[in-house]
Amino acid sequence: MPRSQCRRFDLFSTVNVKSLMTNNITCSNGHLLYIQNQIILVTAFLGLSSAFLLVDNCPVSSPCTCSGSSGSYSYIRCGSKSLTNIPNIKQSSSHVNKLYLYFYSNKISVIQNNAFRNFSSINASEIDLQLYSNMIHSIESNAFNGIANTTTSLDLHNNNLTILPSAILNLFNLRTLNVLGNPLHSLDKLIHHQCQI
């Protein structure tokens, strides 16, 4: 479609998606691109950038969803989905300042080694990890590989942890840890050792 026919859509415009599906639009000055059966909003005029704004860009599959803006923050929402483990993600070349990973209120009982390894491809500066209200009784020592340097907040409240696992020591930039509502009766030996030094 010639550039002169490229339309500018503001945030509240109603767009007939079905009619767009018959055209391939590439507009260098427009605000809507339609390429290879994907609608991509070019959001410079909205003051946003789009990493997970559209479902097609979400690095996790259904039933999880994604939202946010690539330059500032993004959410991967897998809470209350009856998951029994951390889902795999597709490789992503996105960068966000803050990534919110929501895995709360599921049926996860063990966080296995390398469960978050592929999340490093999102290249977040900071990660807020929500694992509360699961059935977690064990976190393996290398569970946080891939996000160990960027996780700043970890919420494990209302799980089944009886010891504070040593895997938490691998979260080098952790600032907030919530373990309320767990039947904790001792610290892991390694954590106990670190506290004694």
Results as ranks from 00 to 15, higher is better:
N145D: 13
S94M: 01
S105A: 12
P59M: 04
C58V: 00
S28C: 12
T43A: 05
S50A: 13
S141G: 06
L177R: 11
A167E: 01
T65H: 00
L11F: 10
L187H: 00
P165Y: 00
D10M: 13
M135A: 08
H192Q: 13
S67W: 00
L190M: 09
V42H: 13
N88E: 13
S4N: 08
K189D: 13
L101Q: 01
L99V: 04
Q5M: 14
A51T: 02
K189S: 13
I163L: 12
V60I: 04
S133T: 01
C58G: 03
Y75R: 07
R3D: 15
V55N: 08
T65N: 03
S120Q: 08
S153D: 09
L169T: 05
Q38K: 15
S94H: 02
I86Q: 03
N173D: 08
H137P: 05
V110G: 08
L154Q: 00
L32F: 11
L20E: 07
N160G: 08
N16G: 12
N123K: 11
R3N: 15
N29P: 14
N57G: 03
S69N: 11
T26W: 10
D188G: 07
S133P: 02
L154G: 04
N114P: 04
M135T: 08
I86N: 05
S141W: 04
L164E: 01
H137I: 10
A51Q: 00
C195D: 13
E140Y: 07
S92G: 10
L171N: 01
V17P: 14
T65C: 00
L184F: 06
H31G: 15
N123Y: 07
L161D: 00
F172M: 12
I127R: 00
G71V: 03
R7P: 07
N24C: 12
N57I: 01
G68I: 06
R175W: 05
N37F: 08
P165K: 01
T43P: 00
I122H: 03
T176A: 14
S109G: 02
M1A: 14
P183E: 15
T162D: 02
L41T: 15
K107I: 15
D155A: 15
S141I: 10
H193K: 13
N106Y: 09
H137W: 11
S186C: 09
S120D: 06
M135H: 07
C78Y: 04
V96M: 00
S109K: 01
P2I: 09
I108D: 03
H157I: 10
L54N: 06
L161E: 01
N170Q: 12
Y104G: 04
G181N: 09
C64F: 03
L129N: 04
S74N: 06
N149A: 11
I35W: 10
C6N: 08
I40D: 07
S28N: 14
K81Q: 14
S93V: 13
P63L: 00
I86A: 02
D10C: 15
L190A: 11
S62W: 10
C27I: 04
T162R: 07
H157A: 14
S50K: 09
K98S: 14
H193D: 14
N158R: 09
S92A: 11
C64T: 04
N118W: 02
T150G: 02
Q196S: 12
G79N: 12
S13A: 13
I39Y: 10
S19F: 11
N29E: 15
